[in-house]
Simulated assay, not measured.
Amino acid sequence: MLQPFLVSTSVVALAEIGDKTQLLSLVLAARYRKPLPIALGVLVATLANHAGAGGLGTLLSGILNPTVLNWAVVASFVLMAGWILIPDKLDEGELAMPKKAMGVFGTTVFVFFLAEMGDKTQIVTIALAARYHDFFGVVSGSTLGMILANVPVIYLGSRFANKLPIKAVHIIASIIFVVLGGLALRNAITGTAFAM
């Protein structure tokens, strides 16, 4: 089904704008000035991270009572709608780069994977995988969304990032999460299993 892929791609791409991992992409691009290994590192780190998140979401959708799962999905979308409006910042601890022995690609995979742990886009990947019970559609869509949001920043740097209306993008993403939460609420109230 195409819907989980398209929803995951669009929601994650919007959620990633101004996110700490997008800021990390900008820092990596400025520090190393080697866009291809950085972009490939972001791809590998995202695939690994979102595969785990998608697996967890799919597992939860298989073991949780459908009513409990419906309400959990409602709660996650409502929380994401609010969380997306809080601007992210990179802490100094998150910028600790490993020794040069890892190279640009290895460093990017390592720091990006760690920065993505517990991040908005990882949480939304869990929620979407639970919502749609579609591991491949959600993981491929969320990974594409991350790439769509990060690769332009890696290649174009701050010239691109500084021109984005980040607040407006976050408001749009928040509205999408509210709509998804409303649809999930309808399903929870009516007892419908994951239909949109």
Results as ranks from 00 to 15, higher is better:
L56M: 15
K34I: 08
L69S: 03
E92A: 13
E94I: 11
W71L: 11
M146V: 15
N49I: 01
F5N: 00
Q122P: 02
I189E: 09
N162W: 11
V109A: 00
V111F: 02
I63H: 04
V104K: 11
F110A: 09
L14A: 13
A168R: 14
P35D: 09
G93V: 08
L185D: 00
T67V: 08
A168V: 13
L36H: 12
A13L: 04
A130S: 06
L164E: 04
F105R: 02
V7F: 11
Q22H: 11
T121E: 04
K34G: 02
Q122M: 05
S140K: 00
L26C: 13
L85S: 08
K34S: 11
A48Q: 03
A149Y: 07
D119E: 14
L23C: 12
V124H: 01
P152W: 04
V27F: 13
A51C: 02
G93Q: 14
T46D: 04
F135T: 00
T46V: 13
T121W: 05
L90G: 00
K163W: 05
A130C: 05
M1E: 04
S76T: 14
V109P: 00
K89L: 05
T108Q: 10
L90T: 03
V179K: 05
S61T: 07
P165E: 12
S140T: 00
L23T: 13
I154R: 06
V27E: 15
L36D: 11
A72V: 13
L40C: 13
L95D: 09
V78P: 04
V139K: 00
K89N: 13
F136P: 04
